[in-house]
């Protein structure tokens, strides 16, 4: 009788162990890979290059293409939420990026700002790979007037959200610039947010 009980106990322990191992494996598989961090060598250097091409007239952007990381996404206008924070396209449309409509349009003199999610509950989103961009990579924006504004990446930086470089992103500029924003850095499970913003700095080229 004791041996029969022992047999049952062994079976239960084996079942617990197998199920536990399975759950741990599933848990590890479910934890998403973190977004790439920009390297130290690609940080923006400060002063923007001199204007190389004449500015374009205002025309709303309709899509963004970044060949180096395989991005091609439609753009929707965004503003700010009730707290004054930059709006982001709805999470239900993670493949769409937003254009900050209170600023200039891409190609006009000044810094045009695009924002997109890094990920969503469904997985990586439109700007997941922004941190992989290197100086010289190109970003193409198709505008409502059918013109295409091409930008070359000057640098990529990662900034804590409470020390966001407002002036560098939204501040005045004598050139036609582009800023791409997404989240990055460590994911804080307590707040459900990433602690940093990744910002790509680019300047219009012919």
């Amino acid at each position: 009788m004791p041996w029969r009980r022992t047999g049952w106990t062994v079976t239960v322990i084996a079942l617990l162990g197998t199920t536990g191992l399975g759950l741990v494996a599933a848990g590890l598989a479910a934890a998403p890979a973190p977004p790439p961090r920009p390297g130290a060598g690609v940080a923006p250097t400060g002063s923007p290059p001199a204007p190389r091409v004449p500015p374009l007239p205002r025309a709303e952007p309709v899509d963004v293409r970044i060949p180096a990381i395989g991005v091609r996404a439609p753009l929707v206008p965004v503003g700010a939420d009730a707290e004054g924070k930059l709006e982001v396209p709805p999470l239900e449309r993670p493949t769409v990026a937003g254009w900050y409509q209170h600023g200039v349009t891409p190609g006009e003199t000044g810094n045009a700002v695009l924002v997109g999610h890094v990920d969503s509950p469904a997985g990586p989103a439109v700007f997941f790979d922004l941190g992989r961009l290197r100086p010289g990579d190109t970003v193409r924006i198709t505008r409502a007037d059918a013109s295409v504004a091409t930008f070359a990446v000057d640098g990529v930086g990662s900034y804590p959200k409470d020390r966001f470089p407002t002036d560098l992103v939204y501040g005045p500029s004598g050139t036609a610039g582009l800023r791409l924003i997404t989240c990055g850095g460590r994911f804080d499970r307590r707040t459900g947010n990433y602690v940093d913003n990744v910002v790509v700095f680019a300047t219009r080229v012919p």
Partner: peptide, 26 residues
């Protein structure tokens, strides 16, 4: 706008519950 952009949307509980349950069973 004020500060940075809330541009992350992953589920804060991604895999954590499953990992905890698996750990408890093990």
């Amino acid at each position: 706008p004020i500060g940075g952009a809330p541009a992350g949307g992953r589920d804060a509980g991604d895999g954590v519950g499953t990992l905890a349950a698996g750990g408890a069973l093990l």
